[in-house]
Design a protein around this nucleic acid. Sequence first.
DNA 1: ACGGGTGGAACG
DNA 2: TCGTTCCAC
Length: 772
Amino acid sequence: MRGHPWQRLQLQWEGLIAINYAARAAGITRHMRVHEARALCPELQCVHVETIGGDELVDTKDRTKQKACLERYRKACIEILAVLHKAAPQAVIEKASIDEVYMDVTTMVERELRERAQADSCREAETGEGGAHDWEAGGSPVDAFSWGGIVLGGGPLDVGSEFERRLSIGANIACRLRGAVRDQLGFTCSAGIAANKLLAKVASAMNKPNQQTIVPPRAVDEMMRDLPLKKLRNFGGKLGAELAAMGCVTAGQVSALPHGQLTARFGEERAAGIARAVRGYSDEPVQVKELAKSMLAAKSFNATSAPAELDRWLRILADELSHRLTEDGLTHSRAPRTLSLSYRGSNGDRSKCCPAPRPTKEGYTVEALKEAGSILLRKCHDIYPCARLALQASLTTPDLLMWKPQDVASSESLNLNFVALLQASDFYTLPLSDDQGAISRFLTSATGDGGAALPEAPKPKKSGPQQPSIAQMFKRAAAKAPPQGPPPDQAPDAASAQPPAQEASPQSVGDRGASDGVPSNTPDAQAGSVRSPGQREAAQGNAAKSGEGGHTIPLAEGRQGSQDQPGSKSPLLQLPNSAGASLQRQSLQAANDVRSSRPASDAQCNIADRPDAEIAAAGQTELGRGATDTAGVRQPEQSQHPHTRDPGDAGPPGHPDADVAATPCQPPGGVVSSGPAGGAAGAQPECDLTSVDVDEQKRIMREIWLRGQGNAGRPGSGDVGGESASAPAVAGDRSAKRGRVGTAGSGNGAAAKESASKQMRISAMFKAPKKA
DNA sequence: ACGGGTGGAACG
DNA sequence: TCGTTCCAC
């Protein structure tokens, strides 16, 4: 609703689906009909969700002909994530929903703590005065208390408590983040700052429009006592109903239940989980999560038994899905694994699924998907009368990356986690633009051919000499961009000379949209603007050479003369986000998977609600990490009620407090490290694609991708270290950067093996989905 | 008139 | 491991 009168609400068909706070104050609620709402507020303006299908020229939203399209909100979500990444480069970010994120800002908090300590000791040395930081005077880089937020249990925060000092820094961060989102995108949000995700989420909802709430551990008991159970995540459904049947409406009431009653009803394990949750304890880690694992296009309609009707809807669903899938493939280098058709038929909701069809050289066409859907549909014998159809694809995880968890900077010393939940309820009331968006355009311009908007696919031609190498493609593209691109004669050959050091490009392609405060709505810019933490780190490490927005990846094809010589430079491509981004994102995911098996404390932010979303954050001490903590910070606070810990002395079975070997955190040499080794490993890019037109970048990425797909079916193609230009190397590990791409040759055997195996997985990714 | 998406657990 | 259903949000 940015820039629009508060009266505007969002409408879907006849019902209101997003109600801003001003309208709520007027008594308008969700699901109200327009005329009902207007009775309460005559000047009310409603905006319909964007739709696809039907006749686009007739502006009337027709439920019987069109389906809602949420693309705008997915894009906005990506924009928000990009802003958060930029504003909090070290944070672990978990996208919890389209308008919520959790952020673990532990490392940022600890860095701040270290800097303050350092400043203190400097001052002490200079002035001879005491070194204690003057928290209240705000002499720190960031004044701890100017942006705090609402402190539960009564403020201000206690500067005598280390934990509360951490919370205050977390609150500063949350506040800065909210400001960045608001300034750059126009969305307001709320936040909760607490010791774990559970508390942060609850807190973020406590003071709603555009505020943030801090939960010091001392306030938890009171906070939980009267908290309605439904406000607790996972307690809103059946579980909540069962507990209600046992006479419990608040979390406190459940806490007060006799021990045996819970276990009798739910069993030992589940009861323990419930008991912990209602007391505000949680050790669920914040996990790097930004990529959707599945995609769904669905439509409900009046029950019909006409096959042609279903066929028509199926086409519309396939159309939407095909474009989303193609876009996803291009930006994240992955493909759908399964395709499933869900329907509401005579026996209720059912589904059928099959391996996803492989993309043709047109990418994912409407036809391919629709055909697959039709086949599934024929297997549904109880489908008529049908009142709903949904086409869903599960996506492969691009496990391109095999970084060890310890390679990932953000996995270091987690003593305090923060989660930011970004909720933009106003999200759903974004004004419509004149531009209907890419998907609509596809539909209107090419009814029978959803691929019309895609560029002409190059003939895959068996890897003949006439097919330009990937390196050549990029080189040519770069050469075609004279204004910014390096002179053609300076773009070195893939196998020979080293390029001159790249100047840091002022801005990545992906940054352009958000950095100037003008939200960009083009798919290209959007896709490019997301950056994983890992990618950011890599970008920082190589900033001087690579340019901030690009990601350097080694080129797989062709022989590389000096592959195994230490310090030799492998030819590298400078890609704008896309493939490189997913690489590192995955590695972080892997790291987090590991981390989740040990005790981790978390904190969380919660950004919610448009005209004002909100951020919640939580902080807490981590248990189970000892002297190996790389930060060297020993937490004295464990007795101070870190809320990831169980109330009792002895943790219940499976409690994370159990001994867990601490994983020493090593800098990811060559990837994140900026030291000599890392610097050497970071070979110069062959050409800087950030200077190339975005469309051209996409076209190339698409070609690479399709090439890989095309090879998939051919036996023997796409092999590791092959000479063919089939599978592009998309790798970011150290050994690859040393030029060991695709070979299992000399040098460190293990490293070579690792590299080879990685290469294999990369190739596999470009092949057909399993069991195609 | 609870529509349109997501993610995850459980189960055969 | 796969296909399917159910659940929660």
